[in-house]
Design a protein around this nucleic acid. Structure first.
Length: 488
RNA sequence: CGGGGUGUAGCGCAGCCUGGUUAGCGCACCUGCUUUGGGAGCAGGGGGUCGUGUGUUCGAAUCACACCACCCCGACCA
């Protein structure tokens, strides 16, 4: 038992770290708050990226790439934006090192000070809108629908692998539109893309909603979000889409001439998801034996393990089956390594979250069967090798669906409606989860609740029906319930 | 940024309080044999600036001081 994972019931945070580190998704690096994304974690990200990229292209977007560095002066052009990010910026001040006089290594060369400091981008609105000024002259240049896959740096005080790292990988869409309405539609469209991706590929149910003013992105007029519920009852913001109004157009003077030859400021959106989604995936499906990955995103969907014996016809059987599965479009790995025992491999592939494991031993070959084990329920059964491809394909779909159903049931049974502040406090403290309650719409009440319970308004759900009620704190009238939770 | 913790082999740790031969254990690694359908057994072997610096001492992993790094918990944030 070389690799033991702390059970979730003992310490959820420790369990999370164990799963991430021991499954080989990522490890800590020599740089504080920055992680090394290992091949398994990166392959997962590549799969996510491929699907999202396709979805972005289907909705009319194209990719581009903007600089990593942003002149300091750009950041301060939009007042709220700079306020939101100033406290967590990495700053480049010099461009050269030199040998230390005492021979102790290298030091920053004071003569190589930059005239204007450069900020390592925490997000790219400013440099992109500075560029859009040149790209947009006419209504014919709009809409401008651009996405960028990049890394960004936010000097967070407290970091956790995938959930919050000082450097992270993400995509950021930045679009420009001729009308307010069109920009709002874009922001909503991309939120919908994210929600569909979360549910259809990650098998992770999400609540779509809008943020309250105090939780809005720095510089946005409206922030849309998808909120997911983790197994420990805490919420995780899984993606955001912002309607930026004309804030950045005004800050960077981006205007166009409309059909009536009138000069207008451009309307903007930005939207992003990050490697945080990998953390969300872990905390939605995984268990005390390690990762559980949804088949649609799993880097390896099927692993075929041969049970070694002296004579080894298993190998050729395994390779033949792998070939058939690959031809059917599946991602397959074959493990015929005779130096590790079967039990070790079983545990190892479970730890790494492979959805379906096939075992082939001499017994199976004699019986014309294979043993198929599914990761989500740990069930095993023998099936005839003749129908292996169809059955495995079907099983993968079943697993994908089961993960979503299971996660949905979890969210449903951990979403509570409360009518009083007392009930609210008790529910948050004892059950966690999502809490739907009436709120009077003021920042004061929101802050009060946060202070008392550490719960925040995750969003005002888009699909929430209007339902007259009274604020749980002030008793003032409210027209709909909002979604509260303690959050990551 | 506040609080706590930890730095000894790739990983996990013991040793430190009470200084003293060659720094030890488990896992992993290498070799051999036996095993092999749920994390194999035996035998042998390789691997160490004891986080860094300064000090105390005949002698420091061990004592003192300073520093650094990372992790965890909070406040802030994707």
């Amino acid at each position: 038992m070389a690799k033991v994972i702390t059970p979730r019931t003992v310490d959820y945070a420790e369990w999370y770290n164990d799963v991430v580190l021991r499954s080989g998704l990522a490890e800590y690096s020599a740089v504080r708050g920055c992680m090394i994304i290992k091949p398994l974690g990166y392959a997962l990200w590549e799969n996510m990226r491929a699907v999202l990229d396709q979805m972005f292209k289907e909705t009319g977007h194209v990719n581009a790439y903007f600089p990593l560095f942003i002149p300091k002066s750009f950041l301060s052009r939009e007042a709220q934006h700079v306020e939101g990010f100033a406290k967590e910026c990495a700053v480049v001040t010099h461009h050269r090192l030199k040998l230390a006089d005492d021979g102790s290594g290298v030091v920053v060369d004071p003569d190589a000070k930059l005239e204007e400091e450069l900020i390592v981008r925490p997000t790219s609105e400013t440099i992109i809108w500075h560029t859009y000024r040149d790209w947009i002259q006419s209504y014919r240049d709009l809409p401008l629908l651009i996405n960028q896959w990049a890394n960004v740096v936010r000097w967070e005080l407290r970091t956790r692998p995938f959930l919050r790292t000082a450097e992270f990988l993400w995509q950021e869409g930045h679009t420009a539109h001729a009308t307010r309405q069109e920009a709002i539609e874009e922001a909503e469209r991309m939120l919908d893309v994210y929600a569909r991706f979360a549910e259809e590929y990650m098998a992770m149910p999400v609540v779509r909603g809008i943020k309250t003013p105090s939780e809005r992105f720095a510089g946005a007029e409206e922030t849309y979000c998808i909120e997911a519920l983790m197994q420990d009852g805490k919420a995780l913001q899984a993606g955001t889409s912002h309607f930026l109004g004309q804030n950045f157009a005004k800050a960077f003077d981006v205007t166009f001439l409309d059909q009536n030859n009138q000069r207008q400021y451009v309307w903007a959106t930005s939207w992003g998801v990050s490697t945080r989604l990998i953390g969300a995936l872990v905390m939605t499906h995984s268990d005390d034996d390690g990762l559980v990955l949804p088949p649609r995103l799993a880097p390896v969907q099927v692993v075929i393990v041969t049970i070694p014996t002296v004579e080894e016809p298993q190998m050729s059987h395994a390779r033949a089956l792998a070939e058939q599965l690959q031809r059917a479009g599946l991602r397959v790995q074959v493990d015929t390594d005779p130096t590790k025992r079967a039990g070790f491999k079983f545990a190892e592939y479970e730890l790494r979250g492979v959805p379906v494991r096939v075992a082939i031993g001499i017994r199976d070959i004699e019986a014309g069967t294979i043993e198929v084990a599914r990761r989500d329920t740990k069930e095993k059964r023998s099936i005839p090798v003749s129908s292996a491809v169809e059955q495995i394909q079907q099983l993968l779909e079943e697993i994908q669906q089961n993960l979503l159903d299971r996660a949905r049931r979890f969210v449903e049974s951990n979403t509570h409606r409360v009518e009083s502040f007392e009930e609210f406090e008790r529910t948050i403290e004892e059950c966690g989860g999502f809490v739907l309650a009436h709120w009077d719409g003021t920042a004061e009440t929101e802050a009060h609740i946060k202070e008392r319970t550490k719960a925040t308004i995750r969003c005002i759900p888009l699909d929430s029906p209007s339902e007259p009620g009274r604020c749980i704190v002030t008793g003032k009238p409210s027209v709909r319930r909002v979604l509260f939770a303690r959050a990551y």
